[in-house]
Amino acid sequence: GTVKVQGITIKVPNPDKAYKIAKKLAKKYNLTVTRKGNTIKVE
C-alpha cells in the first residue's frame, strides 16, 4: 500500500500497521487520516 503525507507518498507493506501509525501521528499533529484500501492519506 501507500501512505500519503502532505503530498509525499510512501509505499508500505502493511497498510493496517501503517494506518495505526498514521492515526497516532495525525492525533499528535492534528491531521486527518483517510484510508482507501492500501492507500493511506494524511492531510
Rank of each mutant, 00 (worst) to 15 (best):
G1S: 07
G1R: 06
G1T: 06
G1K: 06
G1I: 12
G1D: 05
G1Y: 12
T2K: 10
T2R: 08
T2F: 14
V3S: 04
V3K: 05
V3R: 05
V3T: 04
V3N: 05
V3M: 08
K4G: 05
K4W: 14
K4T: 13
K4I: 15
V5Y: 15
V5W: 15
V5I: 14
V5D: 03
Q6H: 14
Q6V: 13
Q6F: 15
Q6S: 12
G7E: 04
G7W: 12
G7D: 05
G7V: 10
G7K: 07
G7N: 07
G7H: 08
G7M: 08
I8Y: 07
I8S: 03
I8V: 09
I8A: 03
T9D: 04
T9P: 04
I10L: 08
I10E: 01
I10N: 02
I10G: 03
I10V: 08
I10W: 05
I10M: 06
I10F: 11
I10A: 04
K11T: 10
K11M: 12
K11D: 06
K11I: 11
K11Y: 14
K11G: 07
K11L: 13
K11P: 09
V12W: 07
V12H: 05
V12Q: 01
V12N: 02
V12K: 02
P13T: 12
P13S: 13
P13L: 14
P13W: 14
P13Q: 11
N14H: 08
N14I: 06
N14Q: 03
N14S: 09
P15F: 14
P15I: 15
P15H: 06
P15N: 05
P15M: 14
D16C: 14
D16L: 11
D16I: 08
D16W: 12
K17G: 04
K17F: 13
K17N: 07
K17M: 11
A18N: 00
A18S: 02
A18I: 12
A18P: 00
Y19A: 02
Y19V: 01
K20H: 09
K20P: 00
K20Q: 11
K20E: 11
K20R: 09
K20V: 08
I21P: 00
A22Y: 11
A22F: 15
A22M: 14
A22T: 02
K23D: 01
K23N: 04
K23C: 15
K23Y: 06
K23R: 12
K24R: 12
K24W: 15
K24V: 10
K24A: 13
K24Y: 14
L25K: 01
L25D: 00
L25E: 00
L25A: 01
L25C: 14
A26P: 00
A26G: 05
A26I: 08
K27E: 08
K27Q: 10
K27S: 07
K27N: 07
K27G: 06
K28C: 15
K28R: 11
K28S: 07
K28V: 12
Y29E: 00
Y29R: 02
Y29P: 00
N30F: 12
N30Q: 08
N30I: 06
L31S: 01
L31F: 11
L31Q: 01
L31I: 09
L31A: 04
T32D: 01
T32Q: 09
T32E: 05
V33G: 00
V33R: 01
V33H: 00
V33T: 01
V33F: 03
T34I: 09
T34G: 03
T34F: 06
T34V: 07
T34Q: 03
R35F: 05
R35L: 07
R35S: 04
R35Y: 06
R35G: 02
R35T: 04
K36M: 13
K36I: 14
K36G: 02
K36E: 13
K36W: 10
K36D: 12
G37W: 02
G37I: 03
G37A: 05
N38K: 05
N38R: 08
N38E: 05
N38A: 05
N38Y: 03
N38M: 06
T39G: 03
T39W: 11
T39D: 09
T39H: 09
I40T: 01
I40F: 10
I40L: 07
I40G: 02
I40R: 01
I40A: 01
I40H: 04
K41W: 15
K41Q: 10
K41R: 11
K41D: 06
K41I: 15
K41V: 15
K41L: 15
V42G: 01
V42M: 05
V42I: 14
V42D: 00
E43Y: 14
E43I: 12
E43T: 13
E43L: 10
E43W: 14
